[in-house]
Simulated assay, not measured.
Amino acid sequence: MNLYPLGKALVSIIFYPLYRIRVIGKENMPKDNGVLLCSNHIDNLDPPTVGITSPRLVNFMAKEELFEAPILKGLLPKLQAFPVKRGASDRQAIRKALQLLKSGEVVGLFPEGTRSTTGELGEGMAGAGFLALRGECDVVPCAIIGPYKPFKRLTVIYGQPLPMKELRERKASAEEVTQIIMQSIQNLIDTHKNIEK
Rank of each mutant, 00 (worst) to 15 (best):
D190G: 07
I14G: 03
V58P: 10
S54C: 11
Y158F: 15
E175Q: 13
E166P: 04
I94W: 02
C137W: 01
S173T: 15
P111K: 04
Y4K: 11
N44L: 12
K152S: 10
K149C: 04
E27R: 08
R115I: 06
Q179K: 11
A93T: 11
L10Y: 00
Y4D: 10
P55Q: 09
L45K: 03
V58E: 01
L10C: 14
P5E: 01
Q160G: 05
V84R: 05
L100Y: 03
G124F: 01
F67S: 06
N33D: 15
E112I: 02
F60T: 14
K171C: 02
V139F: 06
V35P: 07
A128N: 09
S54D: 03
A132S: 11
I157R: 07
V156E: 01
E136V: 09
L109H: 09
K78H: 13
F60M: 10
Y16D: 10
D46G: 08
V35H: 00
N194L: 05
Q92R: 14
I181L: 03
R86A: 07
F15P: 07
A132V: 06
F151T: 03
R22G: 14
V23I: 15
V84P: 02
A93G: 11
E196N: 15
A97E: 03
A128T: 14
K73R: 15
G7N: 06
V106C: 14
L167P: 13
D46K: 09
I94D: 00
Y16R: 15
K73T: 02
E120R: 12
I24L: 05
V35S: 03
P141Q: 06
L109S: 11
V50T: 05
L188F: 00
N40F: 00
V11I: 15
D43S: 15
H41P: 09
D138I: 06
L72I: 14
H192M: 09
E196K: 14
K26R: 12
E169K: 12
G129V: 05
A174L: 05
D90R: 00
G34Y: 02
G74S: 13
A88S: 14
L6C: 12
A81R: 03
R95S: 10
G146V: 07
A62R: 02
L100M: 03
P55L: 02
A9R: 14
G135L: 01
I71Y: 02
S184V: 13
L3F: 03
K73L: 06
K73D: 08
P111M: 05
P83I: 04
Q92H: 12
L162T: 12
L167M: 13
L75A: 03
P47E: 02
V139S: 08
I42R: 05
V50Y: 00
R134Q: 09
Q92T: 12
M125Q: 13
R95W: 04
Y158N: 12
